[in-house]
Amino acid sequence: MIDKHYNSPSYKPLYDQIKVLLTQSLIGGEWRPGDMIPSEIELAGRYKVSQGTVRKAIDALATENILIRRQGKGTFVATHSAEGMKLRFLRLTSQDGQKELLQNEFISCTKGKADVRMGQILDLKAGASTIEIKRLLTFSGRPLIFDHIIVPAAPFKGLNGTRVEENNGSMYSMYESEFGVRMIRAEERLKAVGAKGEVAKALGLKEGEPILSIERVSFTYGDKPMEWRLGLCVTDNHHYMNELE
């Protein structure tokens, strides 16, 4: 059975205990994004459980987009660099369904300190160092999203404006490839607001024109919050699309 040092509550289903152990290996960096993990038989031997129990744990992680099964090849750690995952959290879609050329226009990258609210959101002490990024996302040349991002400074040491500009793509891919931080899931809150100040100017709107506010907190392994993001979006000919299961 499982290592005697494993201290999960006894009521946890066995497959759930294996899921936690697999996640701990991911957190520890044993398998990096894009890596193939050991086979079900190997993992069953490691944890001294049945292959069916391992399969159930892997299925649960695959459902959460943490692992990806590839028929005839094996099971791999999901990566934001993979096609289809790069824009996983971007839900703004053209009403006519046409694919658009997405580009990022860098605005600023500054160091800051977490206030009480941001400390609560990112699980930081008030006053902890943060990095604040602002950029403009254009769809086929038209500015549609004003992105305001705050991350804790410690996990992203060396992140600066030059790196953001050079990346010019998915922030999540950069977090993953350059800082070893993979975003697993996100929570979002949506509401209608009026465009103001630098946001209205950047998006080419009049003061008070309606836009969609998407406040998002993204989490890495272990459900640790690693990014706060406010996307302010023009939706006159775009809509927010989500798939519910």
Results as ranks from 00 to 15, higher is better:
residue 2 I to L: 15
residue 233 C to I: 04
residue 190 L to V: 03
residue 12 K to R: 13
residue 46 R to Y: 08
residue 26 L to M: 12
residue 225 P to W: 08
residue 116 V to T: 09
residue 3 D to A: 11
residue 245 E to I: 10
residue 9 P to I: 03
residue 227 E to F: 03
residue 115 D to K: 00
residue 153 A to K: 01
residue 209 E to N: 13
residue 233 C to R: 07
residue 43 L to P: 03
residue 102 L to R: 14
residue 219 F to Y: 15
residue 229 R to L: 15
residue 6 Y to V: 10
residue 203 L to C: 09
residue 125 K to S: 15
residue 105 E to N: 02
residue 54 V to N: 07
residue 123 D to W: 07
residue 84 G to W: 04
residue 45 G to M: 01
residue 7 N to P: 11
residue 168 N to F: 03
residue 126 A to I: 03
residue 164 V to W: 00
residue 203 L to S: 07
residue 204 G to D: 06
residue 145 I to G: 04
residue 134 K to E: 15
residue 31 W to P: 00
residue 67 L to G: 04
residue 193 V to F: 04
residue 174 M to G: 09
residue 182 R to F: 01
residue 150 I to N: 08
residue 78 A to P: 02
residue 237 N to A: 11
residue 227 E to K: 01
residue 25 S to F: 07
residue 156 F to P: 01
residue 180 G to A: 01
residue 142 R to D: 10
residue 179 F to Y: 14
residue 234 V to H: 07
residue 18 I to D: 00
residue 223 D to H: 13
residue 222 G to M: 10
residue 58 I to W: 04
residue 145 I to N: 05
residue 67 L to W: 08
residue 111 K to H: 09
residue 225 P to E: 07
residue 80 H to S: 15
residue 135 R to C: 01
residue 129 S to K: 15
residue 137 L to P: 00
residue 95 Q to L: 12
residue 138 T to A: 15
residue 185 R to G: 11
residue 67 L to T: 01
residue 98 Q to K: 11
residue 144 L to A: 08
residue 100 E to T: 02
residue 99 K to I: 06
residue 23 T to F: 02
residue 9 P to A: 04
residue 234 V to G: 09
residue 214 I to R: 14
residue 238 H to N: 10
residue 17 Q to T: 10
residue 61 L to Q: 05
residue 200 A to D: 07
residue 157 K to H: 11
residue 169 G to Q: 03
residue 186 A to F: 06
residue 148 H to I: 12
residue 42 E to V: 00
residue 73 K to C: 12
residue 162 T to S: 06
residue 29 G to N: 01
residue 1 M to T: 07
residue 126 A to D: 06
residue 92 L to M: 13
residue 215 E to V: 06
residue 204 G to P: 11
residue 179 F to K: 06
residue 79 T to S: 15
residue 151 V to P: 02
residue 116 V to H: 13
residue 66 I to Q: 06
residue 49 V to F: 01
residue 86 K to C: 11
residue 4 K to F: 07
residue 55 R to H: 09
residue 82 A to Y: 09
residue 146 F to W: 05
residue 142 R to F: 10
residue 83 E to L: 00
residue 65 N to H: 14
residue 46 R to K: 12
residue 203 L to G: 14
residue 145 I to R: 07
residue 108 S to L: 08
residue 233 C to M: 02
residue 47 Y to N: 03
residue 245 E to M: 08
residue 74 G to F: 10
residue 5 H to G: 08
residue 89 F to Y: 04
residue 17 Q to K: 14
residue 33 P to V: 00
residue 181 V to C: 05
residue 141 G to Y: 02
residue 152 P to Q: 10
residue 102 L to G: 02
residue 218 S to L: 14
residue 79 T to I: 02
residue 70 R to C: 09
residue 118 M to H: 10
residue 138 T to G: 07
residue 171 M to C: 05
residue 145 I to P: 12
residue 133 I to T: 04
residue 14 L to M: 05
residue 146 F to S: 01
residue 232 L to H: 14
residue 231 G to S: 13
residue 67 L to H: 06
residue 51 Q to H: 05
residue 14 L to P: 03
residue 51 Q to D: 09
residue 132 E to T: 00
residue 151 V to I: 14
residue 189 R to Y: 09
residue 67 L to A: 10
residue 79 T to A: 14
residue 34 G to M: 04
residue 135 R to P: 06
residue 119 G to N: 04
residue 31 W to F: 12
residue 156 F to M: 06
residue 190 L to D: 02
residue 123 D to F: 08
residue 57 A to S: 05
residue 224 K to R: 14
residue 33 P to L: 03
residue 142 R to E: 14
residue 68 I to S: 11
residue 122 L to G: 01
residue 185 R to K: 13
residue 138 T to K: 15
